[in-house]
Design a binder for these strands. Sequence first.
DNA 1: CTACGTACCCACGTTATGTG
DNA 2: CACATAACGTGGGTACGTAG
Length: 399
Amino acid sequence: MQRQSTQKPLEQARVRTQYVQDSKDKIDKTVIHMEDHFQHTISREQLAEIAELNPDHYSRMFRKYKGTSPIGYLTGLRMEKAKTLLKHSHYSIAEIARLVGYSDPYHFSRRFKQLIGVAPTHFKEQDLPRIVALDGLGHCQALGMEPIAADLDRAGGYVHVSASNQLLNIGPLVTPKADLEQLIALHPQMIVTANSELEQQLSTVATTIKLDVLEDPIYTQLFAVAAALGREKEAAAWVKSYEAQCTELRSRLFGSIGGERVAILRVREQLLQVYGMLNMGYPIYHSLQLAPPDKISMQSIFNAHFHSSVISIEELPFYEAEHLLVVVQPDNGARSEWQEITQTEAWHNFPAVRMGNVHHIDVANWLNNDPISILKQMHEAAELLMKGSRRRNYPSWMQ
DNA sequence: CTACGTACCCACGTTATGTG
DNA sequence: CACATAACGTGGGTACGTAG
């Protein structure tokens, strides 16, 4: 008799979940090692040893979680460091090559051109505009442009800000004089903002780029920024890569959950919302083309700007779905609201709850609506829905 | 001339991938 | 997990261009 058949399904799921988590932790351990030691020689074997995995198996696992080979990831890391040094230091190319882990500057130069598109010397001389991103940091980064300052409070957890890129946190800009003076002192050439009043006010300081984050689809927003920065080619390349990833994830998801419905629930103090196709719904319903609850489909058809419905817990059965993504606001009011919800009959009868398909997502990563965040949200959602058909992903404060 | 950077070539090492 | 093999990456060498 096979061992599996004697093991309870829940126990199997627990073991599988533990295994997945262990592998991820091991890969993360090697990523930290790369970040700390990129200036030295690092081999796949060394990394595999750190991860306590067979080198072949390690490469496979790494690609599974990071989408690239270990050495490919390390090279990318080194090139990012090199870009920073080229822009912000006076070291020679040979010195920079050495500082990022290349003993042969010629080799470094070749790889740099191959990956970045321009030779190190030209990159150093490129006169990039001084951009201040009061909004749209993710838009700029998707176009390969690193602003000199940004409102990091509005950037969201998914927009990566590396410690080395000297990005100044300027926000939140609430228009009093002091803030404006600080902004002018930066001598910006471009300012990206979603606030029309500010745009008017700042148009005398620099060329302003107005983002319409509520009305415009993400591609329109990206191309608006690209047009102002002369980066249309980069925008097109980003869209192409993004759509290729959408297609790949859609086909994998179809294989694992088929046409099952996904609902998105946001819990706040005294407020329960079910999301539509916009904002948090965008990566789920638009990018991954997953099915929303039937009522959300109807509401979206009748109102193209439909954002979310505020509901009472008794109305939950009208939004039936086989999978549920839940955002609980990280405050005590929302947490106690959440505790109450999970005690109700409507909750226990909800299909996704009965099937064990409830996943928690972090508000800090999910409220932002920029290319970088949307891409990562899509990957996070796909991973949760594919791997975790029986996995509970409670945040640490709930355990 | 010298220093620095890029392009090209070649041999060898490393990594990815398919198969069992 | 082991193995074979193809693909890719690396490092050393040389030639050449450019600027001071």
